[in-house]
């Protein structure tokens, strides 16, 4: 199995926004989903997940409500705010630009460096 990689700095917020954008979820489900979707390659630091969630809530990118889960337990469900959706779009775009640029540089052939 592939070794687990640490998340590059600053990407956890973006990933959280993306997962929450798919529908209201609680913290544990966010951790689960990140792990599953990334095929266990990305190590989600659970200890940083909650501070990140609270920070995003504090910046009004996320909102939270206490609701019952399907098992009848009360949990804190996060959902995306309008501001959060806008932030997700801009950050996704800038991530795309960055990875494209880095990809171009890494695939640069010997002759291309002239």
């Amino acid at each position: 199995m592939a070794t687990k990689s640490d998340l590059p700095q600053g990407t956890l917020d973006l990933l959280i926004l993306k997962v929450v954008a798919l529908g209201p979820v609680h913290g544990y489900a966010i951790a689960q989903r990140l792990q599953q979707v990334s095929n266990d390659v990305v190590q989600v630091p659970q200890g940083s997940l909650y501070p990140a969630l609270h920070r995003l809530e504090n910046r009004n990118l996320l909102a939270a409500d206490w609701k019952e889960t399907e098992t009848g337990r009360e949990a804190k469900f996060y959902r995306l705010t309008k501001k959060g959706r806008a932030q997700l779009e801009t950050e996704t775009a800038s991530w795309d630009r960055l990875t494209q640029a880095v990809g171009l540089i890494l695939r640069m052939s010997e002759g291309g460096a002239k």
């Binding site: 630091p45 659970q46 200890g47 940083s48 909650y50 501070p51 990140a52 609270h54 920070r55 504090n58």
Partner: peptide
């Protein structure tokens, strides 16, 4: 273990509260 020290996590959450 996978969550980490509960007090440390709580402290970081408190910091995030602003």
């Amino acid at each position: 273990i996978s969550l980490g020290g509960p007090e440390q996590v709580k402290e970081k959450c408190r910091d995030a509260r602003g």
